[in-house]
Design a protein around this nucleic acid. Structure first.
Lengths: 341, 341
DNA sequence: GTGAAAGCGCTAACAC
DNA sequence: GTGTTAGCGCTTTCAC
């Protein structure tokens, strides 16, 4: 069973030609290099018969291309990222690329370590959710000529490829939706970070609130608190200190989950009165009672956009490619938690 | 900025020794090869200074080892698998390995395609959730000397390394738990497949039911129905046709989600009367009302066991390694849905 | 104690 | 039209 792998040399020997000829034929350069049809066919037929597969490692060493794309997110076990990963994987494999997934925990040091690691691995391209402090590392990658695409968030001062969603507009619309449904004291629960997507969500909220002439009620949960208690204690406190709230808008789905937990445990009477809406949809929100309204990010579209952009960067010479910055539309899924009371 | 990468040759030239010496030192063979302390130190210091990292591709080509481990699951966007992936990733990176995740959709053809692909990539080891028909492919891998670990399920007739949980025992205990809480007409909702883990879960249920002298009420959802409607229509029908049911036991968490959805939409009065329990815990189940009892698989332990086993297979010569078959304990998380009424 | 050199499998410039 | 050969960066045998 342990039939040794075929090499291009073996093939050449069997057919009675040189490795060059075989290589040319295999790389589709038969025409260009004017290899005779007879030889070409003979080689192709034999290759087919023995199911020859080139040794990728050797190809990589020789060409400097690894056919590997890195997909670096905060945490691959997060539903949103796992879902994207699944779709990107499929597209990549179809084009002969593999995707190496990794989690940076939104940590600069870990991000940089990982990127360094991948450079040794000759990774062809990078799709990255950048942590706050790796701007210069990203710049370095770009300067070195690697295809890089940021997503979910980006560095406004850095002219890079990125794919994001319309955070501000979506956030404005969600807030407006609550206002239109007669909610007046809308609390916004977010985390205390300077990431573009979170800033945009905050600004969308503020804009709608200001426009309506209402007051802002904002809870910014510290990262430390988020890590230790999932922010539950902060939310609890916020609810206690702001009893007039008649609606809550969560800036991410995990904040909404923490919020629901707190409401369940300590304010059970509140949960059906309060208007609730959240960024990032989950299947779960359609099953919960009340069903929870959410701003849904278009998984499939994001994944496809990222991958297609990466593949095109990889194909065309990177230096010639224009910077591409894409903002995709989210979708407001209205369920019962945000209905007029 | 584009400072070309250092090669072992450059180092040799700078230090004024041969590449052999450098290679020996870098591979920790200085002592063994009796390289002088002076030279060794000089090399190590320089290497440190320029932050030299060996070219992994070249190493792979030369040694035939890629430092890549494949982790093949049904669907990486599934919470359980994504969670495992996250933990395994960390362990692997610490040991200098990368993990290539991929989804086989529980499809034989896709599994085989992927395995073939990885063989060209010189992957070092395989951790696989096998789809039903790839027994011979797994055998082939093993015969060819690759470290292979199956998990979640296995082929009883095949003597391989595997890591699973105590499905039958856990299922028995969960059913017994319902019985002890005075539920008598317990429906078991599963899918119609011949996978060991599902068979064990079914048998655990059957054993507890028989022991109690009760009647079995089993719904086996066809794969087709699962794909098209998430099994919701089957569950609906099952509930309508078996009105005497006072409890439902779901064999997986996604079945439980479908079940909850059906209950919510069409039997809202039922949901607080019915005893509910499910295999595979989700955060969600702790937030739902009622909170849902579940059999929780030990993520962290599974991931660590898998990875440590793989690393030890990779270290020791595989032929010398004994077959390791591990059955881990699950944990019954009792919440309100299974309380005595 | 250290170095020369072969070779992993492939690509492609150059030679004929 | 096809072959010879250098070389990608590394490991390791053998020679001195």
């Amino acid at each position: 069973m342990k039939n040794k792998r075929h090499s291009i040399k073996d093939i050449a020997a069997v057919i009675g030609v040189s490795v060059t000829t075989v290589s040319f034929v295999l790389n589709g350069k038969a025409e260009e290099k004017k290899i005779s049809k007879v030889v070409t066919d003979k080689i192709l037929k034999y290759v087919e018969k023995i199911k020859y597969k080139p040794n990728q490692t050797a190809q990589s060493l020789r060409t400097g291309k690894s056919k590997i794309i890195v997909f670096m997110v905060e945490d691959i076990s997060n539903y949103f990222f796992a879902k994207l990963a699944r779709i990107m994987e499929d597209i990549a494999y179809k084009k002969g690329y593999k995707v190496l997934f990794c989690s940076n925990e939104n940590n600069d040091e870990k991000s940089i370590d990982l990127i360094n690691l991948f450079k040794d691995r000759q990774v062809d391209g990078y799709i990255i959710i950048p942590s706050a402090g790796i701007k210069s590392k990203i710049e370095e990658l770009i300067e070195e000529g690697f295809p890089v695409i940021l997503f979910d968030r980006y560095f406004p001062e850095l002219d890079t490829n990125y794919v994001v969603v319309n955070n501000k507009e979506a956030s404005y619309n969600a807030t407006k939706h609550l206002i239109d449904n007669n909610f007046q004291h809308i609390g916004f629960v977010t985390i205390d970070v300077q990431q573009t997507q979170m800033i945009d969500r905050l600004n969308g909220y503020k804009e709608a609130i200001t426009e309506a002439g209402f007051n802002e009620n904002i809870l910014k949960i510290s990262l430390q608190d988020l890590t230790n208690y999932g922010g539950e204690n902060s939310i609890q406190e916020f609810l206690e200190k702001t009893p007039k709230l008649d609606a809550l808008y969560f800036a991410t789905n995990y904040l909404a989950l923490s919020g629901l937990k707190v409401l369940n445990e300590n304010f059970p009477h509140y949960i059906n009165k309060l208007g609730i809406i959240t960024f990032d949809d989950l299947d779960f929100f359609g099953i919960y009672r009340p069903t929870i309204s959410a701003i849904s990010q278009p998984f499939s579209e994001i994944a496809q956009t990222l991958m297609n952009l990466m593949l095109s960067l990889l194909k065309n010479d990177i230096k010639g490619s224009p910077i591409t910055q894409i903002k995709l539309k989210t979708n407001l899924v209205v369920r019962s938690s945000s209905q007029k009371r």
